[in-house]
Design a protein around this nucleic acid. Structure first.
Lengths: 169, 169
DNA sequence: TTATACTTTCAAAAATTATTGAAAGTTAAT
DNA sequence: ATTAACTTTCAATAATTTTTGAAAGTATAA
């Protein structure tokens, strides 16, 4: 396969995966493009390569910066901004985990722990089932939260290799 | 907090979390409702409690069955169908992991390995960056895939407790 | 200060996704 | 074979999310 075709396929696949996991398709595609760009690129470059509007490019890149995946670069003597993506996939995974934990997991965890203090009659099956389910979900969610925290602190691929060792040994 | 209020909050929170992670909000809400229902319930029950249409209820419940999270039950002498959700959160997590792996991770993994065979000039930075990024992503994706496979086989909460031990010790 | 080169905003439009509801389909009892 | 009880389908509609693009904003240079 030729590079040009491969690039398009990667951008498409990354966009699809993103959209299936609740990340805006265009944002994932812009990230994909930046991931395979050796040098920092401009808004114009992104607009051209992905055929998207200036406004969309601007907001999407800003989002990616907000996710900690992309940074602005300035070139001496130039006025326009250049964008560059961190290419270290472990950093990327950690960063995504960190943000999703903060934005989506923690708010739910907060609600779940509020729901553990619900009052009711111990003989009511509705109440007992509610308590049991919420309690179980809460415990699992806390474990997932802790695991993500560990992942965020772990350097290198040591994390995954450790996990895999647990199941091989 | 009273049970009735807590139920609504849980259904809302579960729906929101689902939608943030690419799962239809209504599907997550129906699942939430079933998770806190001690007995199997009918289409009518779901329609009433969530104020959704019969068609929507039918398709959503069918989806949940397709995800392996809900089963049909028949009651002797009755014609209507009852639905019941597995309440074991570890089973649920495994089942969701299994399905998402199959539906969303594996297709991307397939494309990624195709993309590793891209041809190009070793001196071309575009080519080198592409190769490096795809290679790195591929390696990480394979590790995630293996970890999910291990998770799917692991019984009980042994999985998470093992992971956590690795990082505490 | 004015012009130029850019970035940002956001209301409107387009695209996508989810939902409805009534008609068609199915199944089982009489 | 007909009715009754229920489930399924799907075209139309509604809701939501994404994208556009032109106007407004900002910063630099002359």
């Amino acid at each position: 396969m030729e590079l040009a075709e491969a690039k398009l396929k990667f951008i498409e696949a990354w966009g699809k995966l993103g959209s299936e996991w609740g990340i805006n398709r265009t944002m994932a595609q812009v990230h994909a493009l930046l991931l395979i760009s050796p040098e920092a690129i401009t808004t114009e470059d992104i607009m051209e390569q992905l055929s998207i509007s200036r406004g969309n490019t601007n907001m999407t890149v800003r989002d990616l910066i907000g996710w900690g995946l992309v940074e602005k670069q300035h070139k001496a003597g130039e006025r326009k901004e250049y964008f560059f993506a961190d290419k270290d996939v472990w950093n990327i995974a950690r960063q995504v985990a960190k943000e999703r934990k903060k934005r989506e997991l923690e708010p739910v965890l907060k609600i779940l722990s509020e729901l553990t203090s619900v009052t009711g009659d111990d003989k009511d099956p509705e109440f007992k089932t509610f308590q049991k389910s919420i309690g179980d979900i809460n415990r699992l969610a806390k474990n997932i939260d802790k695991t993500m925290e560990a992942m965020m602190k772990a350097e290198e691929n040591w994390f995954l290799s450790s996990i895999l060792k647990v199941f091989k040994g």
